[in-house]
Design a protein around this nucleic acid. Sequence first.
DNA 1: ATTGAAATTGAATTTAATTTCAATATTATA
DNA 2: TATAATATTGAAATTAAATTCAATTTCAAT
Lengths: 244, 244
Amino acid sequence: MSNPTNNSTTVGNTSSKGSPTVARSAKGEQARNKLKQAALTVLARVGYHKMRITDVTKEAGVAAGLFYHYFPDLKSLTIEVLTDFILESQNIEEIEKDVPKGDWFERMLAHNRLVVRTYAKHPGIMRCLLQLADEDSTFSETLRNNFIQQLNWLVRLMPKLFPQAAFSEHQARIVIYALAGNAEAILRDYYINRDPRLLEHPLSVDEMAELLSVTFYRGLFLENPPAEKLSYTSNLQYMKKQSS
Amino acid sequence: MSNPTNNSTTVGNTSSKGSPTVARSAKGEQARNKLKQAALTVLARVGYHKMRITDVTKEAGVAAGLFYHYFPDLKSLTIEVLTDFILESQNIEEIEKDVPKGDWFERMLAHNRLVVRTYAKHPGIMRCLLQLADEDSTFSETLRNNFIQQLNWLVRLMPKLFPQAAFSEHQARIVIYALAGNAEAILRDYYINRDPRLLEHPLSVDEMAELLSVTFYRGLFLENPPAEKLSYTSNLQYMKKQSS
DNA sequence: ATTGAAATTGAATTTAATTTCAATATTATA
DNA sequence: TATAATATTGAAATTAAATTCAATTTCAAT
């Protein structure tokens, strides 16, 4: 935000010749950020594939040619903007980590609340994350690294939590992946695609987060979370095999 | 396959004037199908966004101009080709429905085997399904309809399975959606993105299907499926809350 | 105030594709 | 085998963007 020169953000420097792709003055830095902010706005509105360079420069209120003074192409700009977006989310996430140690359900809940809030507030940007991940394998990897890393604490804990199951690290990861992947489809179809069958009775962010946490917790522990922690899903304690 | 004229496949007829978008002879039908087959090949190879009209005509071995004789644009062709692809999958699916009535786990397993097999065999096409769903809201809806419809039998069964839980139809659908959505992320990252951390120890189609079915079953019933039906995941019976 | 480095403009150019269409070929039918 | 309907070709025109760059402006340092 403050320092004009040393940023690691400049990604796709087209070899060595040509335009700088980095601002060389405070004013330049301002303009560069104006373009980034404009890009975020356009991305949220029209998505990655429909975005045009002139959309961004118009939104920023600058001439088209200026774009190339700071970015080699739309993809670089988009990657930079979305990487920033993810990092900002993660920053907040650290703060979120003030839940009692060992309370698995609260920890899942805190994590899910953050994710759900982000989808609810920025559905267009979340869509772009998926678009760009499909387009660019490096970005796709970044996203997956992120996801896997957030699950790692749990993966590493598995042998201790369930010694009898004798998990290999790989199997633990696969199982956790399968359990945690449940969020993506419903979040996309609820917040991005806004399927009327899902929106029929709207859920608050907390309710959605609770739902995702409960299904995860049940799959992991074969047990419902403590009833006193539930509201929207409290009836799920009765969702279990009858008779037998 | 046999009947040249009456096909409902032609989707985006650009109003009334202009080229037919439908073959008017057996030879024409042949050429049209050749283009569709070529499109499928190109889609699998390069994906929807990188596909060009000349890619398709070259692959089909015809002149570029012929494209417009049968299709208004790439999107129409792609929608038609992918819709066919889905329908073919579903045909097989009906056959798959010869599992013992009331055996929930076997039913899930049969369904998941089919889905996993399709991802394993046609990762490029599955990727295109996601790409086009993102691009075209009508196609996105088609895909979701499909998904929701396949879950409907279970949604409708919920009140009977768990009377005490007193599910509304909407809540039942949301819960099932959350549980069933787990497949998408892992299938994408395993078969399409081929994440090395997941591929480290390769899973067979049956193993992957088993995994997805077990996590679903556990979340639904708070119980592990019958041990004798499991192989890759048999140790998951020990994945449950210890002590208390 | 002058100067030079950097920022900025926007019209001209280039690029990569789509789209058209007159000419030609094929085919089924009378 | 003539004819008309349809299929097919591929070069030319069009289109919608990206990209370049000479000219101009801004601004901080001297």
